[in-house]
Design a protein around this nucleic acid. Structure first.
Lengths: 341, 341
DNA sequence: CTGAAAGCGCTTACAG
DNA sequence: CTGAAAGCGCTTACAG
């Protein structure tokens, strides 16, 4: 059907090796005039290299996999995942790589998971915001299969994540310096690296400043708007509610804004809210959200580039921490006493 | 390095063909006892089939490509794309297919685009919400390469889209029956199928009801929150603004809600707003958005299944229109006179 | 039920 | 500078 190098060779009465070298422009020299003719015939025949055959020999498919585990029903619900994916995709295009998406990986079915991951022709994998998949990583490491962990860490592989502790500190310092002493927290997914680190940083800060850690000022919102709203209601419906709320991502923070409005709590006058991510929505919600920015696109791009290095030359495991920055908008202000309308 | 069927054959002193048939459980019968031993040795050697080699022979990679053109700087900014992608991924997993993502396709570089699309080992392609890529489609059709068009139509290929005309009619009937006669529109991307169809359906409805089509009540928001907000400001800042606004997607509608708030225009008392998509945000914004629901996940899944049929047996080109439904929430109400505070 | 062999479309030593 | 040949890891007619 489709033309192969054999067809070109036959047509020109030359060997396939010469065709191959001519087409690839090396590494063996080919008489320029001959090369021209090869290219000419290739075009005539609408020749298109079969990369499968090439990959079989070179052992490189130039496809990398992006992996999401089953904890996320959707691949890209969150703005954070959007940023990461865009970063990966951009970098991949730049580096001439293709991106294969593997989603809904079942972390409990180790063998099945390994099979699925290794069957996609991929040269390497990027795990994004998954539960800690240590046994799975171990299996891959045993086979010396290249992978990198994004928003997580692994002993055996390069890992990239944001400076959660620093980011949380920025957010809480901001609230503290505004005068807040009653600070609540809506937690992400406890089993996820970011959720855990942010939660722990929150507790560490309160302890450090000798602020009260009220159990009923902390609730788990699982990084989703729906559960975030439930968590916010649980915290804000109480008479002794906090004056400020730090949320582990923007989606939950925006949901909290909605809950506050429903409860007639004015933001920022009666309640300050801080998010995490700096999603697009954060500047479009009402009031515009003060949040901790994490460079998700850069992180995605870094993960891809690191993976490529890892594939090329087995570059060593290391951790890349990206700095977080505070973006102050209008959802935070000094607490006002007795404003509980 | 990794074990191959040769290694297994050698170890058992049998032929590779027998190993192959044993591993695949057919189509040639293999003595059950022998088969067991093959499987046993395969496990011992941590054998893993090289699907590249298999694909080379069977001419099926079981990878399908999802294509987005360069008009979208991000792959998955919109809730609509999230839905579609999730639908594709779900169906792909169900059908044992892998999904490769091709983004930022340059529609002006026809040859480059074709090269990129055909080089990813993919069995077929799904084009999602792209500009009309007729010449590109023609090239693929010429090569009998399977593809389907999502949110668009093509003569030569299966296409899936939503019933835009019906959906818009639902939205506008709703506004009309509430008493609105001054209706504006924030347009999507004019070069996109959905943007165009919704715009045309809007005009058709107004003509049909003999309503005024005021040029300054229509503005283009390009399906984005940012440009949507600009468009909303242009329309709403005028003294003779409309009493209702139909927006071609939810993101622009939510942006319009923000603009209305900034301008001190109360929704729905002084302005009714309707969106399109029924994104997650539509129920979390304020007020919750009345919108036209399109079943984006089902559409994505349908596109994948149709593509697979097309790959299998060259099933004929046809158009699948999915129904749209109206979801009434709180952003619409009868117009009230003289409420221009 | 099993083996020996051809072949998928390439790349790349080995010879000249 | 070029050709003839081996081989990547499989599948699948062709023989028995």
């Amino acid at each position: 059907m489709a033309a192969t190098i054999k067809d070109i060779a036959k047509r020109l009465n030359i060997s396939v090796s010469t065709v191959s070298y001519a087409l690839n422009g090396g590494p063996r020299p080919v008489a320029p005039e001959l090369r021209e003719r090869v290219l000419q015939v290739a075009k005539e025949l609408d020749y298109r290299p079969n990369r499968l055959a090439k990959s079989l020999i070179t052992r490189r498919s130039h496809i990398v996999g992006v992996v999401r585990d089953a904890s996320a029903h959707d691949l890209v619900t969150s703005p954070y995942m959007q940023g990461v994916l865009n970063g990966v995709l951009n970098a991949a295009e730049e580096m001439g790589q293709n991106v294969l998406v593997v989603t809904r990986l079942d972390p409990h079915d180790l063998e099945g998971a390994v099979d699925r991951l290794l069957e996609g022709h991929v040269d390497g994998l990027i795990f994004v915001a998954t539960f800690t998949l240590t046994p799975l990583y171990a299996e891959l490491a045993k086979r010396r299969f290249p992978y990198v962990v994004l928003s997580g860490t692994d002993q055996a592989a390069p890992s990239v994540c944001v400076d959660n502790a620093g980011g949380v500190r920025l957010a809480l310092e901001h609230l503290y310096s505004l005068g807040h002493r009653r600070i609540g927290h809506i937690e992400g997914i406890p089993g996820h690296f970011d959720g855990r680190e942010r939660y722990e940083a929150f507790r560490a800060f309160l302890r450090e400043r000798n602020l009260p850690i009220e159990p009923h000022w902390v609730a788990c919102g699982m990084f989703t708007p729906f559960e975030g709203a439930t968590a916010a209601r649980a915290i804000l419906a109480r008479p002794d509610r906090p004056t400020a709320l730090f949320c582990a991502n923007d989606e939950m923070a925006i949901a909290a804004l909605g809950v506050a409005r429903d409860l007639g709590i004015r933001v920022p006058e009666e309640l300050s809210v801080v998010g995490f991510d700096d999603a697009v929505n954060a500047s479009y919600c009402h009031p515009p959200l003060t949040t901790v920015r994490q460079p998700s696109e850069e992180m995605g791009a870094a993960a891809l580039r690191t993976l490529l290095e890892r594939i090329e030359d087995q570059s060593p495991a290391h951790l890349m921490r990206f700095p977080a920055t505070l973006v102050v908008r209008s959802s935070t202000a000094p607490p006002t006493k007795g404003a509980l309308s």
